[in-house]
Nucleic acid binder design. Structure first.
Lengths: 104, 104
DNA sequence: GAATCACATAAGTGTATGCTTATGTATTGA
DNA sequence: TCAATACATAAGCATACACTTATGTGATTC
């Protein structure tokens, strides 16, 4: 759950893609492995890194394990980045749009 | 300038602290090294990583090299994170405050 | 112009990382 | 109950990373 952990977790392209897939909806490990030319243990280890960093959460369901994004992890990155808001892009439009969406 | 590069760059605690220091204002390499028990080449290599990732910019000034945060790098992280705005913290207050600041 | 200063670069080393194959452990189905 | 499924864990290996000392390079100072 440390900053080092979640930056390290996201520093790997495979793990970022896994994270991106989970953003579209929850999946189990076998589904997540589709399209990756990688052994099952390799994916399992990647998932362990993401989970240990607090970026994803797991839920055992029978013999399957369902993974989904952990909003707390995203919130932590958001909080880290907010420290540098002085350097954020000056275009405010997108931020305004987001705010509108979140208010609903 | 790739996503992998900037996440790797920020995955190191020393480089995050350097980045944080530069957020308070520009500095040269010798000033940045103050407080770190680390050789000069080590710091130089860290700065090279941050620069290569597009997170900081350098400016030669005589025999000194002045470093500062590169807003483009911060913008890139911001853009990456914005893809997951569905998972952003639901508390909008801070975002509203930021928006106010940026509008001025 | 010779010494010093502020860096970068090179080469070497221990440790971390990402992968593999092999194996372990529940859970499910025949 | 016995085989198959869906994972996790262990051990081993090649590569990447963060550090060191040694050296190089250009700017300053005396």
């Amino acid at each position: 759950m440390s900053e080092t952990e979640f930056f390290k977790a996201l520093a790997d392209p495979t793990r970022r893609e896994v994270f991106e897939r989970l953003a579209d909806g929850e999946m189990n490990a076998t589904e997540l492995r589709q399209g990756f030319e990688m052994s099952q243990p390799a994916m399992s280890q990647h998932l362990a890194v993401l989970r240990s960093a607090g970026l994803i959460a797991e839920q055992k369901l029978g013999r399957n394990v369902i993974y989904r994004i952990n909003p707390d992890g995203v919130a932590q990155i958001h909080q880290w980045l907010s420290r540098y808001h002085a350097f954020w892009p000056k275009r405010v439009d997108e931020l305004k749009r987001l705010l509108k969406e979140m208010d609903q």
